[in-house]
Design a binder for these strands. Structure first.
Length: 992
DNA sequence: AGTTCGTCGTT
DNA sequence: GACGTACGACGAACTG
């Protein structure tokens, strides 16, 4: 029958994808079973079935235990993380669900799902059936022929690519039958299969075209010249093996005929029973039944279903109750008023109307005005849910957690450009709570700045936006102090995403939207119909502004999408107790950062220029010395060329290898080589010159990057502080990075002397926390000895060393002190004995002794650190003192390197993160204090545990006291927070 | 033109 | 067999 369509699904890849696309914490039953993969699987399945209308379906699964491939290639799929522990239990339910839907699933011991797929696809093709293979594995491409198409998921699952013969040919320039040859040459990173280094799809295809097949290539491998030919000859065995492994088996005896894969329909009884177990609602049931209607011949056990289904319908019979519930229940987030861009574009119609801003606001914000003084959205304060390890006493600076009412959210959205922290506004959109939008051009926005400020003042507590810091830069262009002051939105979806999952970072709004709606199906709701139009109003009082030169629709659409994203992310943030963090810390600090970026740091341009000149000539000198020693020239900045000089020409023996197999030429290696070959005149002078070149070149580059970023208008440097990049909660700094200006040795530190007070200011003050991370550990672990060490107020490292070595502080040697100091700092990084030994230049045995002594002295610190990792393993995430979470999927990896790294990160995250939280609170407090005292002095830089303040004349003492107080009392711990300050004519001199 | 690697600066 | 977190910047080398 030509109508027949066979759909073959790779069950494992679909379940994995579903699992990672959906946050497990939002999908679980009361009894604690995770259902995210099941739900996502069902969702994806129905989507594909609705799109493709197959008549026959089979789902293939892998079976536990290895296959013949593992015997051939031990590392096969070695880099793949083991299935997370809450994924595996979901498979039986998926299979049960498939059975209830009348879908056949197949597993076969000794074979992978891919082989079952290969067999079924071959069967389908031979029967002349229209065959679709849904798989995320590119090996499936070899199955494509005139009857077989592979549905291959792109970045977004919903856009499945239909890979047919032409598509493979277009993309890879080979036929589907040749595809495995190409894959064998290229390798497959996902499966830990190395290909020929340096050979990608392009070269592989070229060779295949030239020689017809992999066999042809291997026979004529001698004829291939160049590096790639050489690499091919070296990896010939690997390639042969790859080709064996990636060939799918296509003739397993499955003991099943295609007819048996026909979809007869769902068994209602079984379906209701499994949906009940999974606590899936009627929406999911309805959707499944739309895709897989009940089997008319299945009349068995009708009485038992009716009891089940009435059970379900009772709770959701009332439609208004459903809507209410679905807003709160993350599992039903699908039914929230979610608009993707496509939907919005259909619904938003631009209608140019002449309205006055005031009357428009009056009309469309009426609902907010009514509830303004009796606002239910201000709920009773909720305690911050904290990690049991860390307890903070003082959270008064944090706002109380609010409930989220999507009907009250409105959006203020400015577009424009942003360079050197200088904004220019192009459009300004107000999306009202009733989903009507007003779009202003620059001139209109300018003349209504005060009105907008008033709007913010009245309703800022339900205002949402994206990237408030950049918005504020842009809004500054309107030159309205009132607007800048009033701009305090309640929700920033960029920050919301960051506090919900700091690991994922969307580079722009588009990416954030994609990520937010990934795996979420959008349903048409009545609410979405309410988006009625984007209106552009003309200012009657300013006739010159009457011309509308732009289309307001995209602006309104973007604003509407921001509201939609907020409707998904804010409830998520509330559930995970992150809203307080966003509103109490991130949003307030974003205002401080905005001002810091706007103000910038003044630099002495001449000084930078002369440094650049000096470093440049040093670079050239060192380069010449290196050339002389080597007896030839080369690019000293090329690790590859250095390798050949050092390890081939000069015959030195390499020390360590790099990831990709070459010998490392990093500074540590060069140092070691210099000691080892101290008697080899030529080698050692080359090494010394090279090291010198490296150092000077680095400094030269840093100075150059600073010069490049000087703003021509005010001769200051305006860095950008990235607030949503570092997974621990720290800030980062770019264009230029002012958080990595050299500080370790005199030569580099000089660069700091180029940072000076600007016109109208007299000096710089540097204020930094001493040993914050250690103090956090002392507090959180409750270790009495360490707490006492901090309270004693003496030389901390000396005091600790005296405890560790059991001698009085004055008898501690310089070595002992520095060793203990390194140990102390290494703690928070999960430092190994080996690493400690490396750093201290002592034997691993000695390092081990030190470590044991240290932990014997500070036992509770040891317990605390272990507890952090253990808790991260159970919870899946760590928390800082202020509840900031970071998730660690790698903690359960079977790959030890990955797992160890995750453990170290999990140990470090709550400590580094708490330090970051404290500094952010200190910045908010310092900024506020300076404002309140009317000081002209201002904070201009933050370097993780240091603030740099630009001091105005006569303010030094007062400002010093204020900033010190802000930092020392940002939070109250069981140990004091020590801040040291210094003042000087430049940043270097301000050091203390 | 865009990506990945190696290296190195900070905390 | 590796072996300290978190970042950003640069040039080289390789991909298209």
């Amino acid at each position: 029958m030509t109508q027949d369509r066979l759909l073959i699904i790779d069950g494992h890849s679909l379940a994995f994808r579903a699992y990672f696309a959906l946050d497990a914490s939002h999908f679980s039953t009361k009894s604690g079973l995770s259902t995210n993969a099941i739900w996502g699987f069902a969702n994806m399945l129905t989507t594909v079935v609705n799109d493709e209308h197959p008549t026959h379906i089979a789902v293939a699964f892998d079976v536990k235990g290895g296959t013949f491939r593992n015997e051939m290639l031990p590392q096969y799929k070695g880099t793949r993380d083991a299935a997370p522990e809450d994924l595996l239990p979901q498979f039986p339910y998926i299979q049960q669900l498939l059975k209830a839907l009348g879908i056949t699933y197949i597993e076969k011991p000794g074979y992978e799902g891919d082989d079952i797929i290969g067999t079924l696809a071959t069967m389908g093709s031979q029967a002349g059936m229209d065959t679709l293979v849904l798989s995320g594995d590119r090996d499936a491409f070899q199955l494509i022929d005139e009857h077989v198409t592979v549905l291959y998921p792109g970045h977004h699952f919903r856009d499945l690519k239909h890979m047919d013969e032409q598509a493979v040919l277009d993309k890879y320039k080979v036929t589907p039958a040749q595809y495995p040859d190409l894959a064998a040459l290229r390798g497959e990173t996902a499966d830990n299969i190395p290909g020929v280094p340096g050979v990608g799809d392009g070269f592989a295809a070229k060779w295949i075209a030239q020689f017809g097949s992999l066999e042809g290539i291997l026979e004529h491998s001698d004829e291939i010249t160049g590096k790639k030919g050489e690499a091919l000859r070296e990896h010939i065995d690997q390639v042969r093996l790859n080709r064996k492994v990636n060939a799918l088996v296509r003739d397993i005896d499955l003991g099943i005929s295609l007819d048996e894969l026909y979809c007869k329909g769902s068994h209602l009884g079984e379906l209701d029973s499994i949906l009940h177990t999974l606590e899936f609602g009627t929406r999911t049931r309805a959707k499944l039944l739309r895709a897989f209607p009940a089997d008319p011949n299945d009349t068995a056990d009708n009485s038992s279903n009716s009891s089940n289904s009435s059970d379900v319908s009772e709770e959701t019979l009332d439609p208004s109750a459903t809507a209410q519930q679905s807003e709160l229940d993350p599992r039903h987030v699908v039914s929230v008023n979610v608009l993707d861009q496509q939907q919005v574009s259909e619904l938003v119609r631009a209608e140019v109307q002449q309205v006055s801003c005031d009357s428009w606001v009056e009309e469309h914000f009426a609902s907010l005005r009514q509830t303004q003084h009796n606002d239910e959205s201000y709920a009773l304060p909720e305690r911050l849910d904290q990690a049991s390890e860390i307890d903070s006493h003082d959270q008064s600076h944090l706002s109380h957690e609010q409930h989220f009412d999507p009907t009250k959210v409105w959006v203020l959205w400015a577009t424009g450009s942003l360079t050197h922290a200088q904004g220019a506004l192009e459009t300004l959109t107000i999306l009202a709570p009733d989903r009507h939008a007003l779009v202003l051009n620059a001139g209109q926005a300018q003349s209504h700045a005060t009105a907008v400020a008033r709007l913010l003042h009245d309703f800022g507590h339900t205002c949402a936006t994206y990237d408030a810091k950049s918005q504020m830069h842009i809004l500054r262009a309107l030159n309205s102090e009132a607007l800048v002051q009033a701009y305090q939105p309640a929700y920033d979806i960029d920050l919301a995403q960051y506090v919900v999952d700091s690991q994922f970072h969307a580079k722009d709004l588009t990416e954030l939207i994609e990520h937010t709606f990934e795996g979420i199906e959008l349903e048409e709701t009545q609410q979405s119909q309410e988006v009625q139009g984007a209106f552009n109003f003309d200012d009657i009082d300013n006739p010159q502004l009457l011309t509308n030169t732009f289309d307001p629709t995209p602006c309104a659409r973007q604003a509407a999408t921001i509201a939609s994203v907020a409707q998904v992310l804010i409830p998520k943030a509330i559930e995970t107790h992150q809203l307080e963090l966003m509103q109490g810390i991130e949003l307030p600090v974003s205002r401080v950062l905005e001002r810091m970026e706007h103000v910038g740091a003044a630099v002495d341009e001449q000084r930078l220029d002369s440094m650049l000149e000096r470093f440049s000539s040093e670079v050239e000198l060192a380069q010449q010395q290196a050339y002389d020693a080597a007896g030839k020239t080369m690019n000293l900045q090329s690790p590859k060329q250095l390798q050949s000089v050092l390890f081939d020409d000069m015959g030195l023996v390499g020390v360590r290898k790099t990831k990709s197999g070459g010998y490392s030429t990093d500074a540590q290696t060069l140092q070691e080589l210099a000691t080892r070959y101290v008697h080899d005149e030529r080698a050692s002078s080359f090494l010394v010159a090279l090291l010198r070149h490296r150092e000077m070149n680095k400094l030269k580059q840093i100075v150059q990057s600073l010069i490049d970023e000087i703003d021509a208008h005010d001769h200051r440097i305006h860095t950008t502080f990235e607030q949503t990049v570092a997974a621990t909660g720290r800030l980062s700094s770019t264009a230029p990075n002012l958080q990595n200006i050299p500080n370790r040795n005199m030569t580099g530190r000089e660069i700091r002397s180029a940072f000076v007070p600007g016109d109208g200011f007299v000096s710089l003050m540097s204020c930094d926390y001493s040993q914050v991370e250690l103090r956090i550990m002392a507090h959180a672990s409750g270790d009495e000895s360490l707490i006492e060490a901090f309270r004693s107020g003496t030389d901390f490292h000396r005091y600790v060393a005296s405890l560790v070595y059991g001698v009085s502080p004055e008898d501690i040697s310089a070595d002992q002190r520095s060793h203990v100091k390194a140990m102390s700092y290494g703690l928070a990084y999960g430092l190994s004995t080996y690493g400690l030994a490396q750093q201290l230049q002592v034997s691993p045995a000695e390092a081990d002794v030190l470590k044991n002594r240290y932990f014997a002295t500070f036992g509770k610190v040891h317990d605390y650190l272990e507890r952090l990792v253990a808790e991260a393993k159970t919870l899946g995430y760590t928390q800082t003192m202020f509840g900031r979470r970071r998730y660690f999927p790698g903690l359960h990896s079977t790959n030890r390197r990955v797992r160890d790294a995750a453990e170290r990160a999990a140990l470090n995250a709550p400590i580094q993160g708490t330090a970051a939280d404290i500094m952010k609170i200190a910045m908010i407090r310092a900024d506020q204090a300076l404002q309140e005292m009317g000081a002209r002095s201002r904070v201009i830089l933050q370097i993780h545990d240091e603030l740099v303040v630009e001091l105005a004349a006569g303010e030094e003492a007062q400002v010093e006291a204020a900033v010190r107080d802000a930092m020392e009392h940002a939070v109250s711990l069981d140990v004091p927070l020590d801040v040291s300050t210094g003042v000087g004519a430049d940043w270097q001199l301000a050091a203390h």
